[in-house]
Nucleic acid binder design. Sequence first.
RNA 1: UCCCUAGUAGCUCAGCUGGUUAGAGCACAUGACUGUUAAUCAUGGGGUCCCUGGUUCGAGCCCAGGCUGGGGAGCCA
Length: 477
Amino acid sequence: MPKHPSIAQLFNEKPVGTRVTVKGWVRTFRNDQFITVTDGSTIKTIQVVINKENFEEDTLKKIQTGACISATGTLEKSLGKGQEIEVVCEALEILGESDPNEFPIQMKRHTLEFLREKAHLRFRTNTFGAVFRLRHHLAFAIHKFFNDRGFFYLHSPIITGSDAEGAGEMFRVTNLDLENLPKNEKGEIDYSQDFFGKTTNLTVSGQLEAELAALALGSVYTFGPTFRAENSNTSRHLAEFWMIEPEVAFNDIHDNQDLAEDFLKYCIQYALDHAREDLEFLQEREINEDKLKPVDERQSMPLIQRLEFVVNNQFERITYTEAIDILLNSSHYKKKKFKFNVEWGIDLQSEHERYLVEKHFQKPVIITGYPAKIKAFYMRLNEDGKTVAAMDILVPGIGEIIGGSQREERYEVLLEKCKAFNIPEDHIWWYLETRKFGTCPHAGFGLGFERLIMYVTGMQNIRDVIPFPRTPQNAEF
RNA sequence: UCCCUAGUAGCUCAGCUGGUUAGAGCACAUGACUGUUAAUCAUGGGGUCCCUGGUUCGAGCCCAGGCUGGGGAGCCA
């Protein structure tokens, strides 16, 4: 514990009449008398009141927006209207100056795009303070949810020798001298001289490893960084993001849906219970930002109401085949408003998913039973022989937030799928072996952590919910 | 990667049909005021109009190419 109380503590305990020290950063200095200070412990700021007669002019000059100060004085009930308590300052120390001509964060509206370029300082703003406090609470909620249910936290490798994860383009990991690559007799690059004696990459998914662990420990989850070298330039994709992947032995696709729905609701409820003030701030922010937008682009429900709606309503559960029927029978389809064709066998396009979630059901939807051809090789083939026990959870505003499946546990069927998907057996021999030695039904899913944070905070761009976003052509900071 | 769109002061933006010395609010500096709430009032400083080239008597404005940001699509979480 720091020797001084945080601003959050001061507001919780309100030790009026006692001598306290506040340390934090100056937001504004009004009237040569009132310093608004934030220390990040809460969205709230505390007002430090000074009598300028009592302080050196040099000190007063250094009370600038962005400066770090330590103020000691008596905590009093505020005489002003804007706040309940304030510190009547007796001693003031400037811990770190901030040249106002250079400090870019002002007490005014900044665009998120501008703040993205100041990622090292944007933590100081209300918005990013709220977002990153929520990010913490959600991470904690995830661990608590799984821990309370007897799951074990599995650390899947970040550097992987497997190139069959099948989830996307990978980043190569090497310590070969790129200016002078070793070659074999055929003139090819000799990867046997690389650090691991073979080609290695950053992981695109911990799922296969999680399956190995689940078939021994029962219920496990991973929660770690994941990397995709795809040239995706959207507000929903990152090259480096954090993913949660539970995997449960003996669960089928229905258990998997129950787990995913419980999980999402738990995390959202946890945020509502533990970060209410931050959510209220973000809700206000969203309402104000919406005023600048055309009416049809505004949120139909305020943030907190949206979150409570998800917590209090059953997710809609439909099959892919039913989804296609709904789309085909929609007036939207009959008026030819979809850009992409709708027929059984297509991969659902963003516009289709959005229609189902935002127009038709207006709540989270779980779609199961996708055509085998458009889903990954490890998903369990259904009795009909053409669909798999896959599930996607779609939420309004974000689209797909969770993708999962019951895994193919039957050795022979999995071998066939490997052939059909051109996955060499010797690349995943270890994965196949779990189906030879005591295989069992099991299921799991993957959740993009940043997408959950987007949904809970209402932030529209994924670059604003991770401290230092990694996207194509951008790895600043 | 494809489509659309934007780039003017530190920030957010305006800038007419191509026409004289490029504007506002905020921020900043100086002063006044002193229980303020993004305080207020007065005065002041501050510009590679994204870059390169072109058209023109004349380009912030028109044209071409590029760079960067944003939105959408694809891929996906």
